[in-house]
């Protein structure tokens, strides 16, 4: 993906050609597959109780939270020591590290899950995953501005990508106490294919529609998390993004299963990532850009 700008360009193009298009709900009977184990686990450089959540997959129109998978043995290794994660008493299927645990940069983390029975697979099955915790690449700062023509607040980032190493970035946004990035499609991601070694002077990472999403006011505090992720997680983010955003016969390829990194047919992702955070305080309102 070259840039947010390119994506918006295509979106506008589609909007102009297809301005007569309409959407309506359609009732469909979908087939169902066997339930499978789903892993959603992250280890980051933050010091905290990190969570690995185990659930099962369900029917697409099962409009309820997926049940947690209890009683599993979840072990985590950073190459030096191996710990067993403790299942929460209050939230079945959530397995936690101790509160003082943090991920170390340049370590390979390995996850192993046993003693779960999901679908047609029994308790003797072993599910494993591994993820390399890439070091932090510190960016300088973020700013916000407002694009009047598209009624859009933009979050812009400044910082340098280190040369001659492949970096995968993932960005999440929080406004005051409210997380904007509650799903993959509300996050931003990029690898450095097109800007390896360069300084990004205000690269556009988030576009917030002032009328439909959020209108910033003076005094709003924006916090952006900058995650360094490994390639499998990057590919997972890309897949999750594409499978949950709008698809069209002109711009989209065929739907595909989001590629995870859990062995033995389980779904989901286990990722070890480094995080640092950038802040900015908004000082303007929309009217200031008239």
């Amino acid at each position: 993906m070259i840039s947010k700008a390119y994506k918006y360009l295509l979106l506008l193009l589609a909007g102009s050609f297809l301005f007569t298009a309409c959407e309506e709900e359609i009732s469909l009977d979908l087939k169902s597959d066997n339930p499978r184990l789903v892993v959603d686990g992250f280890i980051t450089t933050d010091t905290m109780a990190h969570r690995v959540r185990l659930t099962t997959s369900g029917g697409y129109f099962d409009n309820k939270p997926m049940a947690g998978v209890s009683g599993a043995v979840v072990s985590l290794s950073d190459g030096v020591e191996t710990i067993i994660l403790a299942e929460s008493d209050t939230s079945p299927g959530d397995y936690f590290t101790p509160d003082d645990y943090y991920g170390k940069q340049n370590h390979l983390y390995k996850l192993a899950i046993t003693n779960v029975a999901v679908g047609n697979k029994g308790r003797d099955e072993v599910y494993t995953a591994e993820s390399f915790l890439n070091p932090i690449v510190k960016m300088d700062s973020i700013t916000v501005d407002y694009l009047k023509i598209w009624k859009m607040w933009r979050v812009l980032m400044y910082g340098r990508d280190p040369k001659n190493e492949k970096n995968h970035y993932w960005f999440r946004l929080k406004i005051n106490d409210w997380w904007y990035s509650t799903e993959y499609r509300f996050t931003s991601y990029a690898d450095d294919t097109y800007f390896d070694g360069n300084y990004a002077e205000g690269v556009w990472l988030f576009g917030l529609n002032a009328e439909e999403e959020v209108d910033l006011k003076p005094g709003d505090r924006l916090m952006m998390e900058c995650w360094m992720v490994d390639e499998p997680f990057y590919n997972f983010i890309n897949g999750a993004y594409q499978e949950t955003e709008y698809k069209s016969p002109i711009f989209s390829g065929p739907p595909a299963n989001v590629p995870g990194n859990i062995s033995n047919g389980a779904l989901g992702i286990f990722a070890a990532c480094s995080i640092h955070r950038l802040y900015t305080d908004n000082t303007k309102s929309r009217e200031d850009f008239d």
Partner: peptide
Amino acid sequence: FPVGRFESGGSIIPIY
């Protein structure tokens, strides 16, 4: 069309 779903990172992801 999807034959299932799973949850990850707050998203509901289709399974084909």
